[in-house]
Design a protein around this nucleic acid. Structure first.
Length: 361
DNA sequence: GATCCGTGGTT
DNA sequence: TAACCAAGGAT
């Protein structure tokens, strides 16, 4: 990369401008320590895990519930896995929840509840990658660390007019970001960069007139800021199809299973279903996957649709009411009024809601 | 480097 | 509506 850029962006000017802007526009977030307050590493860590690929607005309620229920890393470590997964249900990327719990147990068990205060130490914990390690080191421990998330990549790409497409440009953008990181207030600087990206240097229609860095921004000067960072074209999402089985027992309980620990929706609850991880257009035969034998299946009208990161899914729903409540290998009979305690991902919550709406008629 | 892994909001 | 996008990590 080229360190000799057209403008002098030695860290004092840009960082000072940005920090001054941050002090004037600081947002109050549930996990953010007030001015002068000492950050709680547990809260910083918890929030950073939740914020991975997830918006501030979505995280807010989850963060509050977790903190109220498990105020310290020891409390979280002592919790049963099912409770953690249930509390996480709806947030998505469920490997985060599994790693969160594993990390809590590592910190509480092997480190006496004390988080590492270096990037390398943090990076070694489950669920903590380059971004999160740098963010915790900077925000919770005031370490000089270069925090690079999607916001920072966008800000830096525009500031230096980097036209190389993503994701190939990532190393370049990281190196350029490192040249900006100040010795003082690195945690505030990191949050300022992310806040700037989230509220001013937005993906579309950036508010350059309100930007504290506009005078230094090569992308704005060149008139290409909104086009940056450039991106390589992405593959389109295929459609997958399957059939879900909603089974109610005579006692009014719902049949659920726990999905395999790894992979899609790993460790979460599901209603029994055919496989859908197959080729486009192919649908497994429901007859081969009925969770209980001899039931009278009713094909419910309508389709449950759900979009995942890399494919879309359409599920038909077959429903059955049984007279009794047979034991089903790997199955759990859940009272309908206790479904809030199940670890139901949004897809499965949709299926259950869809089925109950029809069956209650 | 490429792929897999959720969900909800915005445009 | 469809596409895009978000305080990414693991493999």
């Amino acid at each position: 990369m080229d360190a000799a850029a057209p403008h002098d962006r030695a860290s004092p000017p840009v960082a000072d401008h940005l920090l001054a802007w941050y002090d004037r526009h600081r947002r109050h977030l549930p996990w953010r320590a007030g001015p002068g307050e000492t950050a709680d590493p547990y809260r910083v860590w918890l929030s950073e895990i939740m914020l991975q690929q997830t918006t501030v607005a979505t995280v807010g309620p989850y963060f509050r519930r977790f903190l109220e229920r498990w105020p310290t890393v020891h409390d979280l470590a002592a919790a049963p896995s099912e409770e953690v997964m249930s509390a996480w249900a709806g947030l998505g990327y469920y490997a985060r929840a599994r790693n969160l719990h594993a990390c809590a147990r590592a910190v509480a068990g092997e480190r006496g509840g004390v988080f590492p205060d270096t990037e390398a130490g943090l990076r070694a914990l489950p669920g903590i990658g380059a971004y999160t390690a740098a963010a915790i080191a900077a925000i919770a421990f005031d370490r000089k660390a270069t925090v690079v998330d999607g916001n920072v990549e966008r800000v830096v790409a525009r500031l230096f007019a980097v036209e190389e497409p993503m994701p190939a440009a990532k190393p370049t953008l990281r190196a350029l970001a490192a040249t900006l990181t100040p010795d003082r207030r690195p945690g505030d600087f990191a949050q300022a960069m992310m806040d700037l990206g989230a509220t001013v240097c937005t993906p579309r229609r950036p508010a350059c007139l309100s930007c504290p860095l506009s005078g230094s921004c090569d992308g704005r000067i060149a008139g290409i800021a909104e086009e940056l960072p450039r991106k390589s074209p992405k593959a389109e999402r295929p459609m997958r199809r399957g059939t879900a089985f909603v089974v109610l027992s005579g006692a009014g309980n719902l049949l659920l299973r726990v999905r395999p620990a790894k992979g899609m929706l790993g460790g979460m609850h599901e209603v029994p279903a055919t496989p859908w991880d197959s080729k486009t257009g192919w649908r497994a035969d429901p007859d081969d996957h009925e969770p209980v034998a001899g039931a009278v299946w009713i094909a419910l009208p309508g389709i449950v649709r759900h979009g995942f990161t890399h494919y879309d899914l359409e599920l038909e729903v077959l429903a059955a009411r049984l007279r009794d409540q047979p034991a089903v290998p790997g199955g759990e009979w859940w009272p309908l009024d206790r479904l809030d305690d199940a670890a139901l991902p949004t897809l499965m919550a949709k299926v259950v809601r869809h089925a109950l709406a029809h069956l209650s008629r």
